[in-house]
Write a protein that binds this DNA or RNA. Structure first.
Lengths: 191, 191, 191, 191
DNA sequence: TATGAATGAGCCTTCATTCAT
DNA sequence: GATGAATGAAGGCTCATTCAT
């Protein structure tokens, strides 16, 4: 019989790659990068250990690719650089969207928070993470600046922190956190 | 030389116990619970591995005791149950104190945040953590309730989240975070 | 297009077989039998892993066939059994040829020396190796015997050893080894 | 009970270190550096895998320390630098001693030959190996130079090669190699 | 015939924990 | 109480080999 065509193989690899990454996100989120064993990840993905290494150079590489692609997708959704200015409607949309993504990719954001407090692991991805956060802060500074607020940087950093804090609390116990009401207050107070 | 009295022995044990816990907090904060090896902790404490196990049953037990006592100390400082009511001055003091403790026990809080995102580890300490957070939330609900605010629980949870978020951001990069300005805004908006 | 004839097919197989063996010799020589991965060999040969296994039963089998054929070729060149006697001119030719083959098949000889010191691998090929060495030793014993030398076996084994030792040193660092001068001395002293 | 004294521990470590190294030499010699698993080495030494790593940083480090100390001992026996000149008696002694050491440390020399043909492993120890070989070559060049020989370097390299070749052949099959007779011829022809 | 995705045993290494001293 | 040598399970990773296509 003839071997699989190149296209078939590319397809297989694309799908399996995503499968591995998704399994890894779940396990990383639950157990931390260090606590997640490759064995567990591959078991969850239903593949052999060896196969993971034909897709990713190492466990670190796997993490990196997850974070990199996750952030790229996130940035794409917001595309915050479209003109660099934020209107009040856009501000509302921004806060809204942040929290709705949170509900969609819970595992990914759990992973995000577990990384942020682990300097050793952070180093692997921090440049990419800064790439994500920095433009948002810039745009917020601009936003508060335009509103005539005296200390726009403090406002920007505070809003960023609030988003982090709310996300964190929501993620830890999504069922009991009053996300919508909290969101309303944030928009009301910081728009 | 006369043999040590019982009191002296108890004292020695108490001090050594604290020494081990403090060394552990530092190493845990820097390397995560899983990344910190018992070897490193004992080396930092200047004791043998065997001795650590005469004070703590296991690495997990060591973590548990650190968290439990840390939280007890924290609660003591605020003693939020003294009368169950919060005045506006006390509110300001509360926010203020929260952040000043943050600066004092950076290591402990780093550890705290690294735990909060790990379900597996969380289980070990989550009852104790709820014991910490719950009374504060109750008092804040009361506080906003009295002020005639419509959704006091959402306000309380939001303020808790803000404190978490700001703490997290401050801890990750203390030198560049405008803690004082941010604090001012929080008090202004949420008092 | 007409289908390939049986002869063409046999030819293709023969060539591909040689291609794989040559790639393997290079990789084995560079990385040792154990250090050379099948992946590397197939990559060097430009074929798939599966195909290699349709030509050779295993990595060990591949090694065996390389050694067996290498030795057969070597024997053919000298054909030492043509009459069982060695003249002085033939002796000179023999030493000369040995070293010139060394320069031609460096990879093969590197492999040869890496095997000779590994009992486990040696077992695979040692019968064949004895088949190679023995007739040469016999002829040399005869040669020195005829010259009236008292201990012809010791002379024969010494000459064999010298050829090994010089080959080894030349192979390890061909650029700095004074092969021609050394050859001259050998012929002078042992003819 | 009181813990072991420092001296007791140093003693334990010294002995166990030697035990591990000796076991390793045997296994390395038999299987090659790459082919020898840490498991096998520790099994031969009768210890756990973990313990080996409290004595040596890695398998590579273990090899390095074996080679380094082996060579230091070898150099000490000859102390070739005592005056930099070689008399004819000393030459005889030198050849003699070389072969007698061979019989004593067969495993070590097998290891030596297995390294020489593995560039990747060689790199780990080649500086040390050059440190061993170079002075000998220098002294031999001097020796032949003084004798008025035209090409002393070729003589020196040849003698080195002969020693290698004879050692190699002797090591592969000690029982059938006529070491003493061969030695006599070497001394006769190259003194 | 030819491919390369997939497997799993085995490799080197780390580390929480034990225990003789 | 105190030490640190010793263990062994588990972790990340590699690679010869198989097999569906």
């Amino acid at each position: 019989m003839s071997p699989r065509t190149k296209e078939q193989n590319i397809d297989i690899r694309k799908n399996k790659r995503k499968l591995i990454m998704n399994s890894a996100i779940e396990v990383f989120a639950e157990k931390t990068f260090r606590g997640a064993s490759v064995s567990l990840i591959t078991k969850k993905a239903g593949i052999s250990k060896g196969l993971l290494y034909s897709y990713f150079e190492s466990k670190e590489d796997l993490l990196k690719q997850i974070i990199f692609e996750g952030i790229d997708e996130f940035i794409e959704v917001f595309n915050p650089n479209k003109d660099g200015v934020l209107t009040e409607e856009e501000f509302t949309y921004f806060v809204d969207k942040t929290f709705s993504l949170l509900g969609q990719d819970t595992h990914f954001w759990k992973l995000y928070f577990s990384l942020i407090v682990q300097p050793a692991v952070m180093e692997l991805v921090q440049d990419k993470l800064i790439e994500l956060v920095d433009p948002f802060i810039q745009i917020l500074v601009e936003y508060y600046s335009k509103k005539g607020i005296e200390n726009p940087m403090a406002y920007a950093r505070l809003l960023g922190s609030i988003l982090d804090g709310v996300s964190l609390n929501y993620i830890v116990d999504p069922e009991h956190f009053p996300l919508n009401e909290v969101k309303k207050i944030i928009i009301e107070k910081f728009k």
